[in-house]
């Protein structure tokens, strides 16, 4: 299995896309930290990038790589290797490369500029988020037959998780503003990996103070042990469940 992960990783690195991404993160993070005289502002700008760009990049990268590595997987499949191992190896390799790309790209400038714990937390959360997004994208492309449609569906999934889901929440809030929906809405938002990461970062930045009493409740919950476990657990589920479904489908998929 490690052998196969290794070959996927070599294949990904040869692809150079991941190197480009790392460079992109590096330049972005570096310029933000360099240009913004104060770090809080840099962290906020970084957060905006992370929340919108990272899910998109992670999903497209993972989806596209699935098709790019189609032949490679065919070669592997003609060898005595179980399908489960092949697809799991691909998922792990994609995750490692995305997480490393983000970790190095965002992390190196952060360390150079002596970043605080907030920025390191942000980077960590981003890495987890990118893996979850990759898992979702992999599931989407495995479900679809051909590349153009697969990548279209990946875009749609990104659109759903980063926009449509929030539109639903917003509609709920508008139509049921007379009811005490705050807790329910937080719960709902926490079911979306992008929203969950965003909220968790926001509370780390202590934006909760703006939310008055409700914010204090959120903060209390998310910074408690149960809250952290909930965040971590939910993110893990967002990685594990799509991956497991992907494996199940891929095992019985005609190639």
């Amino acid at each position: 299995m490690i052998k196969i992960i290794k070959y996927f990783l070599i294949d990904i690195i040869k692809n150079k896309v991941i190197l480009g991404l790392t460079l992109f993160f590096l330049v972005t993070s570096f310029s933000l930290l360099y240009l913004d005289e104060n770090q809080t502002k840099a962290v906020l700008s970084l957060m905006n990038i992370v929340i919108i760009v990272v899910p998109l990049i992670s999903m497209i990268f993972a989806g596209n790589y699935y098709f790019n590595a189609y032949e490679f997987k065919e070669v592997l499949l003609s060898l005595p290797v179980a399908r489960t191992r092949i697809i799991l190896s691909e998922m792990i390799a994609v995750s490692i490369s995305l997480a490393l790309s983000l970790g190095l790209g965002l992390g190196i400038p952060a360390l150079i500029f002596g970043a605080g714990s907030t920025i390191l937390y942000l980077i960590l959360i981003t890495m987890v988020l990118s893996v979850a997004c990759a898992a979702i994208a992999l599931l989407v492309v495995i479900l679809s037959r051909e590349k153009s449609r697969g990548l279209g569906l990946v875009l749609l999934a990104w659109f759903y998780f980063s926009l449509l889901y929030d539109v639903i929440i917003m509609t709920l809030l508008m139509n049921f503003s007379d009811y005490p929906l705050e807790k329910f809405v937080v719960f709902l938002a926490a079911l979306n990996p992008i929203d969950l990461c965003r909220i968790s970062m926001m509370l780390k930045l202590d934006i909760s103070a703006l939310m008055g009493y409700t914010g204090a409740l959120y903060k209390e919950f998310f910074s408690s042990l149960i809250g952290s476990a909930f965040t971590l657990g939910t993110m893990l589920l967002w990685i594990l469940i799509p991956t497991l479904i992907s494996i199940r489908i891929y095992r019985k998929k005609d190639l």
Binding site: D11, K14, S78, P80, A82
Partner: peptide
Amino acid sequence: YEYRKDIGYMSQISRFPDQLRVGEMLDI
């Protein structure tokens, strides 16, 4: 899947990963 260790397969249109070198392919 174990049975595939006994199969040598030469595919119709030789679909291979584009960016791999011949030697690497062999080594893998």
